Each structure stands twice: as structure tokens, then as C-alpha cells.
Amino acid sequence: MADSLSPACTPLKQEYDSCFNVWFEGYLEPALSASATDAQRTAHYQRKAEEFQAKCGKVYAEYQNCIQGAVKQKGIEPLLQQAREEHPLREPPPLLPPKDSK
């Protein structure tokens, strides 16, 4: 895994990356199962979101705080703001309903 923007943040990045990778494997499990219903998938994804917060949320917040400090220290903040203004993130398009398989 790559180093962080700031060497001081790299241990937090590595801890977060490891936590996320383990969590994400479990997140994808029902997507691989064709027999899971939409309701089962929705419930699973809700549980996985709660699990992420419980297992990885704290280290994610610590890593984000570290990165935000490094961005300020390196003077990158104005460039990020300019990029956000020129190319704002947009809401993803709505998901298409599943096609009936007959």
C-alpha cells in the first residue's frame, strides 16, 4: 500500500486500509450470491455500514483529521477548493430497477 500524503499519517493510513479491506470483502458477499433478495441485500448492507462504523470508523476519522492537517500545512487547501468549484462532485444517477427475468 502507498504511503500517505504526510509520513506522520502513514501508520493511520495503513491501519485504515487493512481494516477497510477486511470489511469490504464481507460487504461484497451478497452481491456475489444470485439467490439473495433485494430486501436481504439492503439489510445486509445496512448491517455492514454499521459494522464499518464500529470497526473502522474511529481510525478513519483519525486518518482524515491527520490528512486535513497535512493539507493545511502543505498549503494545498486553496487548490482543493478550486478543484471542487471547477468540478463539483455530483449525485450519482438513480439506479435502474432490476429487469424481470422470465
Rank of each mutant, 00 (worst) to 15 (best):
I76W: 02
Q68I: 01
C56K: 05
I76C: 07
S35A: 14
Q73H: 12
S6T: 06
D100G: 05
G69I: 02
M1R: 12
E86H: 10
I67E: 12
Y45D: 12
G26W: 00
P93S: 07
S4A: 14
K102D: 14
R84P: 02
C19I: 00
A54P: 06
Y16F: 15
K99A: 09
V71C: 08
Q14A: 01
Q73C: 09
E86T: 02
L95V: 14
P94M: 07
K72F: 12
L79Y: 08
G75Q: 06
E62S: 10
A49V: 08
A70W: 00
A31E: 13
L12K: 15
P94R: 12
A39G: 03
A70T: 04
Q64C: 07
A2C: 09
K13R: 14
F52L: 12
L32V: 11
A70N: 03
W23M: 00
A8N: 09
A8G: 09
A34Y: 12
A31Q: 14
P93V: 05
N21T: 15
D17F: 13
P78M: 03
K72N: 13
R41T: 02
E29Q: 08
Q53T: 09
C66P: 11
V59P: 07
P92Y: 06
G57R: 15
D3N: 10
C19W: 01
F20W: 09
G57T: 00
T37P: 08
E85G: 11
L80D: 03
K55N: 14
E50G: 10
Q68V: 04
L79I: 12
P11V: 00
F24R: 06
V59A: 06
A83D: 08
P93H: 03
A36T: 09
L32I: 05
T42G: 00
A61Y: 02
W23T: 10
V71D: 00
A34R: 01
E51Q: 15
L28Y: 05
Y27I: 01
K74A: 12
S101Q: 11
A54G: 14
E25T: 13
F24N: 04
